[in-house]
Amino acid sequence: MRGRLGAFVLATDEVWRLQGGRDVTEWRANGGTDPECIAFQEMAAGGHYGPGAGSKQGIYVCTGAGELLGSINSNSPQNVVRMLDAALAKWGRLGAGERRKEHGKSAPEARFEWAWPKGGMALRVTMRYLPQDDDPGRERSRSYNHDHAWFSSEEAQRFVPEKLEVGAERVLEDVLFQRIARLHLVDAVRGETRPFDRVEGEIRVEVIAVDDGGVDLKLSGRAVGRGEQPRRGLFRPLGIKAELLGRARYSRKDERFVSLEFVGKGVRWAESRRRRRWRSSVRPIGWHFALAPEPSHGVRIAPTQIRQYSAPWLRRR
């Protein structure tokens, strides 16, 4: 598989925006005009799910001009490889001019990635189900998921206690706590989910050491979210309870965090649908938050719930 992938340029993207939401006809009737979305919709109309409404998730192969060569949405590696080989065979029959042809009309009008507050703080979030017996040495659950949490540089400063002396403490203000708890302390281990309306709790930040370069901080807290969300799809979250603990290092000279990470450990209760029946379930769950590395491709992937961010810097251009 890896050898085959060298024959391709690789890209990945979020499909809901590209496909125009639930129904592309509605999207266009409501004034959808983003050229990147239209380029995708025109290509995907010839793909495995065809034109019209419904998910267009999957793997597509196309030319730089957007001409479809193959597509599939399969959990079978063999089927994916077969599609890739067939697409490469079609590619092999194209002339040099077709291979280098540009699309020319795919530049996006707007992307949430453009809302990244330059100089801000991005946290990489990882979540996974935990063992029932509270033993971290147990075999890990196979599934996990990621997300990103964004803060402007000014918001990041508001994680730091006003007095930089040992014992000084700050309770993270509610708007920042709610961003973390409502939107990121959720069970998205098996896929996107909806945020809670409101979460009770707090995050405290305490100065535990001071030196010439900066301060060491301890983060601790708790969160309880309860939701009465409508049943949709295969999963309905009902609640989350979590405790939080972590450490950070803040540079006084650079006025930024050199490191910041914390773990959330808790339990979620939910209803999930299986064989056409809704059933209740309770699972221990954990989250890890840490400063995100610089992205190699230069673009920070937006938080999945960025539409729910209550942030003055959020401007969708």
Binding site: L5, A7, F8, V9, L10, A11, T12, D13, E14, V15, W16, L18, E36, A39, F40, S55, K56, Q57, G58, I59, Y60, V61, C62, T63, G64, A65, G66, L69, L84, A87, L88, W91, A96, R99, R100, K101, E102, H103, S106, A107, P108, R111, E113, V125, N145, H146, D147, H148, A188, G191, E192, P295, H297, V299, I301, A302, P303, T304
Partner: peptide, 30 residues
């Protein structure tokens, strides 16, 4: 590459086909 558009541009420049992996939620995120 993190967007469909970036992939199209890079594919034309490289003279290679584009493999686009697209899901509900960005695969490099959630």
């Amino acid at each position: 590459l993190p967007t469909f558009h970036d992939g199209l541009v890079a594919a034309a420049e490289a003279g290679k086909p584009l493999l686009l992996w697209t899901m509900n939620g960005h695969p490099l995120g959630c």
